[in-house]
Nucleic acid binder design. Structure first.
Lengths: 142, 142
DNA sequence: CTTGACCCCGTAGTCACTACAGGCCGCACG
DNA sequence: CGTGCGGCCTGTAGTGACTACGGGGTCAAG
């Protein structure tokens, strides 16, 4: 049931299963123009081929790296149109890397404060509450 | 013009300015029941007091720690209704802390891969592109 | 011939805002 | 006393990236 037949037209569910995407997400990506619309069978069913699978895999993996759909759209344009895409792709990745690092820094700040308040709360039998007190104080960060 | 008058009824913009919240966000929080609806002047203008300011400050700081609005709603209920809220508040904070740590872990994984591909891309003069190649490969993580 | 699994479509809901349109209100200035 | 400008009011729509749902068509097995 999972023999990798050399792709004689995948249905939507099969494409989703192979790439790990959600069934509805496949349709969504087509709607926003991230995946090309596949040919249809006589009865209107979508029929995907290996190129669709490859492209959807690209999108999925880019999403796993946190790229936005617009960034992925730009990357796919580079793949399709450019001969020397690496400079621009690298620029996009670098910019995204900066975003990721900024998010990590934000989350680490949250983590530190939360770790402290949880430690101060202890078993929760105190009459006051360090978390609530912190949130009512002028600055939540210590 | 910014004397801290002992709050004779703040207008919405003034409340927003004092707490650092966006003007529209104040109205949004009221709409979803996170901030109590303030009294109105004869002409229908909202008139806030120090209690509103304190509460909105709480919400803002909780948001800065990454709590969702539903979590903040729960925290505010603890503040309003419970005598010994610390156990439950601490449980909420601990659960949120786990979320934050999971997000950090995800982002660090992304950071590592992105850092590697950006390094491999170098000045972008290569004919192939490590980023694009990686995204077309079976697994984006190394 | 019916059942169940698949497919189709459009639409609405999620989260946490943010922005906009169209219209009052209040106050300073001339 | 009028006028202009900013502030306030309301409801609604848009953002990103999906996800879910309802109502119906299709296909193969039993």
């Amino acid at each position: 049931m999972s023999l990798p037949k050399p792709s004689k037209g995948l249905q939507r569910a099969e494409l989703a299963r192979r790439t790990g995407a959600n069934l509805e997400t496949v349709r969504y990506y087509e709607k926003i123009g991230l995946l090309p619309a596949p040919p249809r069978t006589a009865s209107g069913y979508r029929s995907y081929d290996a190129a669709h699978e490859r492209r959807l895999g690209f999108v999925r993996r880019a999403r796993e790296l946190g790229f936005s759909l617009e960034e992925i759209r730009a990357l796919l344009r580079l793949v399709d149109e450019r001969e020397q895409p690496c400079a621009e792709a690298s620029r996009l990745a670098g910019s995204h890397l900066a975003d990721v690092r900024a998010k990590i820094a934000d989350l680490k700040r949250m983590e530190r404060v939360l770790r402290n308040v949880v430690a101060q709360c202890g078993d929760g039998t105190r009459r006051d509450c360090p978390l609530i007190d912190t949130l009512f104080r002028q600055k939540a960060v210590d």
